[in-house]
């Protein structure tokens, strides 16, 4: 009886302390997360300062760099400044209609480094848009694969998911890759969910024949939410880009693929 009495007397005290502790924990979590968020957006706005889109104007190219015969949104990119920020930056990707407007990086030794490291080298999300060492930095491989997280806040490659909408797919068809040498333009021909197979290691595209088989298999994929344009006559002499991001399913990836227009006859 005595024990019971004691415990009921103590109950309000315990409840009070618990409440205080819980409140304190909540405060700490809120402060930490908002600090992280502020840091993150600072990083991004700083970067955006290096690049600003101005009026669209046909790009004047040197004869060495093949042109794409497409109007290119001009960006004032200062690659030497970008290199000072991070020497692994080698290109800039911009997709009108999405929020994809980021530097492209490649780590000299560790392929997975930028999966969870930011532009300033700090560990954590959102990471960077990056390619792996199996790809060169000159966009002349049969398939250049760029990775980016499917961030819940819509950053990095999250807005690529808009390409699952046929109306959006039909209206937003170009990917622009700015480099020091010039600008590469890709016309998007496919957006679909696919297995998480490693596209460069798991699929053999080392010969024109194998590459043609692969392209054929992509164009034949059947899925209700897939958008695939068969009309571009893509063949093994083409060069493609694949943008890969996550889906809600661990073993599935959402891919957006474009064919390089520079030097391509249409």
């Amino acid at each position: 009886m005595g024990k019971n009495y004691k415990s009921t007397k103590r109950a309000p005290l315990i409840a009070g302390v618990t409440l205080c502790v819980a409140g304190l924990i909540c405060c700490i979590i809120f402060m930490v997360t908002s600090y992280k968020k502020a840091n993150l957006s600072n990083d991004m706005t700083n970067l955006q300062n290096y690049a600003s889109v101005s009026a669209s104007e046909p790009q004047s190219e040197t004869s060495i760099f093949p042109t794409a015969n497409v109007d290119i949104p001009e960006k004032n990119l200062n690659f030497s400044e970008l290199h000072k920020t991070n020497p692994d930056i080698y290109a800039w990707i911009y997709i009108p209609g999405t929020s994809v407007d980021y530097p492209v990086l490649q780590h000299p030794t560790d392929d997975t480094f930028y999966l969870e490291h930011n532009i300033d080298g700090s560990a954590g999300l959102p990471g960077c848009i990056y390619s792996e060492l199996l790809n060169g930095k000159s966009f002349d491989d049969r398939n250049t694969v760029l990775y980016g997280h499917n961030m819940r806040n819509g950053s990095m490659f999250a807005t690529l998911h808009r390409y699952a909408d046929k109306d959006f797919f039909d209206a937003n068809r170009y990917i622009y890759i700015y480099t020091e040498k010039g600008t590469y333009v890709y016309e998007i021909f496919a957006a679909y969910t696919y297995s998480d197979i490693h596209l460069l290691k798991g699929l053999d595209i080392t010969s024109d024949e194998k590459f043609a088989d692969y392209l054929e298999s992509v164009l034949a994929i059947r899925g209700m939410g897939n958008n695939i344009d068969n009309s571009l006559n893509i063949n093994s002499s083409d060069r493609i880009i694949t943008l890969s991001t996550c889906t809600s399913n661990d073993t599935r990836r959402f891919l957006v693929q474009g064919v390089l227009l520079n030097g391509r006859e249409r």
Partner: peptide, 21 residues
């Protein structure tokens, strides 16, 4: 589609991508 097991601190606002998986 399940809700994304997300990759970002949970306090971040969910942006309107305008399209659901």
């Amino acid at each position: 589609p399940q809700l994304p097991m997300e990759l970002m601190d949970s306090a971040a606002d969910v942006a309107d991508v305008g399209w659901e998986e």
